[in-house]
Design a protein around this nucleic acid. Structure first.
Length: 512
RNA sequence: GCCCCCGUCAUCUAGCUGGCCUAGGAUACCGGCCUUUCAAGCCGGCGGCGCGGGUUCGAAUCCCGUCGGGGGCACCA
């Protein structure tokens, strides 16, 4: 069997959200796991909603996730263009031929009339789909409508009876009754193509073998199958209607062995905590938001993979390579998938812990820049400091964005003291502790955490205090807060002069 | 209203060609140990087959019904 060709084709409105990202991922995994081709197509046929910012955002999000494409924006490929806005001539040519062939017809109802009709149907308990009223309009009627200033849409006529079935890797055999599939619009009144047309044409023109998409598109499959058959049928010239249209507008021809879409995979809906289709009102749903919150792309990918798919039910933390090896649509379930944000955090924390310190430091850079703690790009000393902090941060953060606040005091010249920490720890014998710690730390050699710990232990013995009583005042003096990474290590990361200066300054805050 | 899908611990799920399931894993939560704060780590615990029938020696697994949830029925995709 030939290598699979799959695609991801978002409409560029808004950000790439996790539901779409999951669809993209499954397609990508399928392609990468079996030497296939991953096509990234932008479905910007709806000028009302599509924006270039959104498109750029989606491209960036895909890159960040590591989902690279073989054909698509910035990459090109043999069956482009990959922006539907640039494929308008093809859709128009196909539509003309469909009209000429008598399988599509002009319908003159206005959007308002159709909406009113839908409303009426709903109120009367009838199915709200288009009635087919303009199927057989006479030449005169059409002229009359035009004279009224009406512009027609182009609709494709669907069969009135019988049923259609297709194979779905997730849902097995799916069938629909044709009487439940109303005639559908392929060209808007302004002449632009709608999703059923553009999507069907492109899947065929780009040789897509498996269409994997959200379950919300399941019901549109019959009409796309129908249209697809129309496009691939011989138009009387010895080639298919699609091939003729392709040639007419000078688009790349299709290899002769390309057939119709062989199979579908309709993915279970991703839902929010309220069990409704996941959307912006459920909070963080944009991939970019997860990036900003400090999640590792490979972990997001891992969790996304688990939304509807599982490997064996017990192995859940999987690397991208493992996902590529193990993923298959056969193991995709049919029940709605709820994105488990808690598990994402937990897995992210695990992945951070598993990162070598230098790698973690690299990943932290953008977050420290964003927090204004280091320059962008960071200076040599800043980057070096991050490198020494990384091992201390590693086991106490779950997201990269949690790191900066934890060690901000290492980057500020002035310590900002937390009132509660001061009140709680800079009192009683704290003055005594600081007075003893100061000279000891000024002299200790070498300036490393082992020696510093020895200093504290010496103080404990001398003052007859526990480590907590000794270290907390120093911690507050140096960090300004009662919580910080382990103290000896933290002090060792800072230079001695800074530590000494801070202890001296904090001495004045101690309430005797 | 019509068509389609789904229903296992708090959450995500494995299991669903019936017995290996006194239902497994993960996350969350609770407890213990460790401990210089916060974490981390280790050990332990809590906790579920929506409901009702049926088939069967035996059902989470098959059938019927019921209830609940979701998706679709656009000149959006």
């Amino acid at each position: 069997m030939a290598a699979p060709r799959v695609r991801f084709c978002p409409a560029p409105s808004g950000w790439l959200h996790v539901g779409s990202a999951r669809t993209a991922l499954y397609n990508w995994l399928h392609a990468r796991g079996r030497g296939g081709v991953f096509v990234f197509r932008i479905e910007d046929t709806d000028a009302e909603r599509a924006t270039t910012e959104s498109m750029q955002g989606m491209v960036a999000a895909m890159r960040w996730l590591g989902l690279d494409w073989d054909e698509g924006p910035d990459v090109d490929g043999p069956y482009g263009p990959y922006l539907q806005s640039e494929r308008a001539p093809l859709y128009a040519a196909v539509a003309r031929r469909l009209l000429a062939a008598g399988v599509a017809y002009e319908a003159f109802e206005t959007p308002e009339e159709l909406a009113a009709e839908r409303e009426r149907a709903r109120a009367e308990g009838r199915p709200p789909g288009y009635s087919g009223a303009h199927r057989e309009l006479s030449e005169e009627r059409r002229a009359a409508y035009r004279a009224e200033g009406r512009l027609p849409v182009l609709r494709v006529r669907t069969p009135d009876e019988g049923e259609i079935g297709f194979d779905d890797v997730v849902r097995e055999r799916v069938t629909f009754a044709w009487r439940d599939v109303p005639d559908f619009v392929i060209l808007r009144a302004d002449g632009t193509a709608t999703y059923p047309l553009a999507n069907t044409v492109d899947d065929l023109a780009q040789g897509i073998t498996l269409v994997a998409r959200g379950e919300d598109l399941l019901a549109s499959t019959p009409r796309q199958q129908h249209l697809g058959a129309l496009l691939l049928a011989d138009d009387g010239s010895g080639r298919s209607l699609l091939d003729a249209a392709l040639a007419e507008v000078g688009f790349p021809a299709r290899p002769t062995d390309w057939g119709p879409v062989a199979a579908y995979a309709h993915l279970p809906m991703m839902v929010g905590p309220d069990r409704k289709k996941l959307s912006k009102r459920h909070g963080a749903v944009a991939v970019d938001e997860f990036r900003r919150q400090g999640f590792l792309p490979e972990v997001l990918v891992n969790l996304l993979a688990l939304c509807g798919w599982s490997y064996d039910g017990r192995t859940e933390q999987l690397s991208v390579d493992e996902l590529v090896r193990y993923f298959s649509f056969e193991r995709v379930g049919r029940n709605p998938a709820l994105f488990d944000a808690d598990k994402l955090r937990a897995f992210n924390g695990d992945a951070i812990k598993a990162l070598p310190p230098e790698a973690l430091a690299d990943r932290l850079v953008p977050y420290f820049s964003a927090a204004g703690l280091v320059a962008d790009p960071p200076g040599t000393a800043e980057r070096e400091l991050l490198g020494r902090l990384a091992p201390l941060l590693s086991e106490r953060i779950q997201t990269l964005a949690e790191a900066p606040p934890l060690v901000a005091f290492c980057f500020h010249d002035e310590v900002s003291y937390d009132d509660k920490a001061v009140a709680k720890h800079l009192k009683g014998r704290a003055g005594e502790v600081l007075d003893e710690a100061l000279p000891a730390l000024e002299e200790v050699e070498p300036w490393n955490h082992e020696a510093i710990l020895a200093v504290f232990d010496g103080l404990c013995e001398k003052l007859g205090l526990g480590r907590g009583k000794v270290m907390q005042p120093v911690r507050v003096a140096v960090a300004g807060t009662a919580v910080s990474p382990p103290l000896p290590e933290t002090l060792a990361v800072l230079d001695r002069a800074t530590v000494v200066e801070r202890i001296r300054a904090a001495r004045a805050l101690v309430q005797e």
